[in-house]
Amino acid sequence: MLLVHSLTKRFPIDDGVLTAVNDVTFEIGSGEVFGLLGPNGAGKTTTMRIILGLLQPDSGYTEVDGLRTSADPMAVKSRLGFVSASDGVYPWLTVREMLLYFADLYSVNVTEAASRCESLCDMMDIGDLLDRRAGDLSTGQRQRVTLVRGLIHDPPVMLLDEPTRGLDVVGVQTIFDYIDILRRGGKAVVVCTHRLDEAERLCDRFGLLHRGRLKHCGTLSDLKEQTGRDSLVDIFVDLIRN
């Protein structure tokens, strides 16, 4: 569902060139949750931006649902859902108006969009908020609206960038439930997070980035075998120290 192949991206800096992503390769299948992990500056955001078609790589490529991002970025965007820590709701629109607006941007049929809006909001337990103005919602309610918005066009691949940042326990559990829904729906999911304990609970496989390189990739058992360490935290700390 998602293929990242030999991805490299460089940026000019005052004293030379910074290689933000250095020959990174991984793939994610249907119904799989992949944790893209690393310290600040590891290359996670740059990788995500290339997948989204917001940056052009210097070499390598990404494919979403069989479509290469560089060849048809608009078609790729229609197959991606994106959720970040920033909710970005439009305060003067009702929840229904905003969701239908985004469905229209993705050329979802009007009847199908209305049906999907109702069913997704019921699934996320915000059906009673559909006709309330988004600016009047609580933080947790806006978060749920954002999660529905990411799925309104039924994309096969979902990208979640620090989805639990700033959330309380209830909000974090909402994210966990949401990712379980994505997994059961056969979505390929990328989760970028600094919360390693959450990543261990959420993800089927992991990719550990450091200074632009993918240092380790595999299941938690694979990573433990590769490193001789007992936890993701220990593996992560060793990676940074070395």
Rank of each mutant, 00 (worst) to 15 (best):
N242D: 14
E162F: 07
G31V: 13
N242A: 12
G186W: 06
G127Q: 15
F206I: 07
T111Y: 12
D15V: 12
F26E: 02
K224L: 09
D72Q: 13
L105I: 15
R165E: 14
F176C: 11
L7K: 06
A71V: 11
V4T: 06
R149L: 05
F82E: 06
L159S: 01
A114V: 00
G150V: 05
N22F: 01
V33P: 00
T139I: 05
L55K: 00
S115T: 13
D234A: 12
I51W: 03
D72W: 02
C117G: 00
L202F: 06
I181W: 08
P156H: 03
V64P: 07
A42L: 02
R144D: 06
D168C: 02
M74A: 14
D128C: 12
L160K: 11
S59I: 05
D65R: 04
L151M: 15
G35K: 01
I240R: 00
V24M: 12
T219W: 04
T19N: 02
D58V: 06
R79C: 11
L129V: 00
Q143I: 11
L130E: 11
V21Y: 04
K77S: 06
N242I: 12
S221C: 02
L105Q: 14
G185L: 03
R184W: 01
V17C: 04
Y106M: 13
V233Y: 05
Y178Q: 09
D128K: 14
P57T: 05
Y61N: 06
L160R: 11
D72E: 13
L167M: 13
N22T: 04
D204M: 10
L2P: 03
D177S: 13
K187E: 06
V76E: 01
L182E: 08
V237K: 05
V190T: 06
E200I: 14
L182P: 10
M48T: 13
K9S: 09
L209N: 09
V83H: 10
T111Q: 15
V21S: 02
A114N: 03
N40C: 01
R213Y: 05
F11S: 06
R96P: 00
Y90S: 01
Y106A: 13
L52R: 07
D122A: 13
